[in-house]
Design a protein around this nucleic acid. Sequence first.
DNA 1: GTCTATACGGAGATAGAC
DNA 2: GTCTATCTCCGTATAGAC
Lengths: 189, 189
Amino acid sequence: MRPESRKQEIINAAAILFKEKGYSAVTMRDLAKAMGIKAASLYNHIQSKQEILSTIIIDLAEEFTTGMNQIANSDQNAIQKLQNIINLHIDVTLRNSDGLASLNNDWMHLEEENLQYFEKMRHEYEESFRNIVYKGVDKGDIKSYNIEIMVFSTLSTLRTLYLWYPKQKNIDADILKRDMMSVLLKGIV
Amino acid sequence: MRPESRKQEIINAAAILFKEKGYSAVTMRDLAKAMGIKAASLYNHIQSKQEILSTIIIDLAEEFTTGMNQIANSDQNAIQKLQNIINLHIDVTLRNSDGLASLNNDWMHLEEENLQYFEKMRHEYEESFRNIVYKGVDKGDIKSYNIEIMVFSTLSTLRTLYLWYPKQKNIDADILKRDMMSVLLKGIV
DNA sequence: GTCTATACGGAGATAGAC
DNA sequence: GTCTATCTCCGTATAGAC
């Protein structure tokens, strides 16, 4: 791994603590102890606790937004797009599963501008996802079950990957992508 | 609705606030304001903030444990048991979706004995679920895909219902049970 | 059952020495 | 870049009057 800036080290350590206890329950003294320094020293690298949270969440949200835009704008069919969305979630989860805990559970502690920005991105992400499923149903690629339940169920699984993946030992990313595709698209029966 | 004890009213109000901001970010002053009284007055009905959290979580966890035990010990096949588990989650979600937020996100803030008790129940619940799927695969009722992914995916969806269900308007419980079954068992393609 | 007043600790953050 | 010392505010919880 390449040397990281002190700021990035703090953010990474914070993401681990936020995952374990949530943003509100982690103190700057906890974070400082995890870094082996005193709390006051953190402020030479970051402006506030809030800045740490917003960096973690906004970076990840923008990553998902960029990825989704590429997928949605491609001229693939719905099934191929769903596969790419699954791949996107798995890739991000493998790279930053700690940060995803904040994205999922602590976004409501963002402050005004970043909160609005995040909610806008999340909403557009869900709309893109929903549109892909709707078009797939229209074309007959996807079953015409209750569409909202399909969207909810699939997104729930993908969003919760960050909790499950770290507990798996030696699971290969490509195998995970293939099997996740099978389970989500073809069901288990 | 029948008249509730003041303590239960406090617990219900707390569950709503915990769902919105998480246990650690909700103060006793927030809770008192939601109840229309002063923070000190809460302590005539509850012993501590921690007691509120553990009541919410342990009651729900015991409900799931009881339900799962009945299902696991019945002489149904795996598919029927899965249907019953889905029904269990939907029933609990309809009745107490606020409390499920704490169960899912704030269990780590339980204190020693209740934390251990909760973790034991959660572990046994997952093991029961896993056993049902394993036996279903053995008997050929369930596909022999990656079993861990099937268990994870299904549980993720059921556990996240509390977030999705309140946003749906006028969805009938029986239709939800039927459609959820279809999506989880038969996939979407 | 609710109030006011208050105790006490710990929160985020800053100033300034080294 | 990290430290010690410290500020101010707000957290949970208690005492005792009404």
